[in-house]
Design a protein around this nucleic acid. Sequence first.
DNA 1: ATAATTTACATCGAATCGATAGGAATTATG
DNA 2: CATAATTCCTATCGATTCGATGTAAATTAT
Lengths: 151, 151
Amino acid sequence: MKFSARFEYALLALLYLKCEPDESPISGRVLSEKLSLPYRFLEQILTDLKKAGLVRSVRGYHGGYRLAVEPEEISLYDVFRVTEGKLEPYNCGEGENGDRCGQSHNMCVISSFYDDIKDTMTNLLKSYTLDKLCQASRNMGAPKAAPAANV
Amino acid sequence: MKFSARFEYALLALLYLKCEPDESPISGRVLSEKLSLPYRFLEQILTDLKKAGLVRSVRGYHGGYRLAVEPEEISLYDVFRVTEGKLEPYNCGEGENGDRCGQSHNMCVISSFYDDIKDTMTNLLKSYTLDKLCQASRNMGAPKAAPAANV
DNA sequence: ATAATTTACATCGAATCGATAGGAATTATG
DNA sequence: CATAATTCCTATCGATTCGATGTAAATTAT
């Protein structure tokens, strides 16, 4: 029940690309230095973000990365799916384990609870967009004030 | 962002203790057979549950486990804390990493988002009690119906 | 005394995770 | 065309976690 470094780094990179917009694309090297993140590792993540279509990349001399989508369109749910995989913590009935609910109704109860968790998380993640987060970042004066986006 | 097997096993064990109440305590061996769970591993978990005060144990010949608290009192949040540890996915300012928000406001934005996640999860976990889950299990006729507890 | 049980501790194998490294492909620039 | 800068692909490493097993000691009703 923790977020991975991948998720955090992806988020920081995307926020940087959004909040510090530039004419030319920003290279992975520069990005890693600005954010104090390990270069190679960050590029792995950027590659994943690219495959998911959240980021475009330009190769070669003045190459680098930039957002591929409007920042209102990018939600943390998108980022999550790229870095953490799918959001299905329980398999009831399908999957390699077979039908586990056949054994006991308690399994099914747990399963429906997991579904609830999943839905709640999904909605919460979808409610946060890059755009909102960036605005919140600009409004940062008080260290730990507003919850930033409570719908 | 997945629940561990520990959490699931603990939940199944607690549900069994609650839903199939008995005069004498239920041994770890029996529990593991009824639930088709690995014996040793389950006992590890039961030990943890005992340390947390959710379960009582009786040693010796007719020993075994039983609930230590009223099932209305046991929430999934309690179980979560035993099996998954604490629920703090981000450390902003404190901890060994030092103050990360000093570097960039984006960090603080992420941090407040993490807080939101944490609160939401906490509330959701607290809203589920053993008692509710057990009732839902009894009402199981339709395979995948009611969300069981949406407060 | 014996059998059944919890309890403590040690370890194991596999998987995951964060991170690093080398090198190939691509591209602007001179 | 050559070069430097960059993305991209793949392999690997070390550490940690996770699920699980094993051994042996302490406890207790019979």
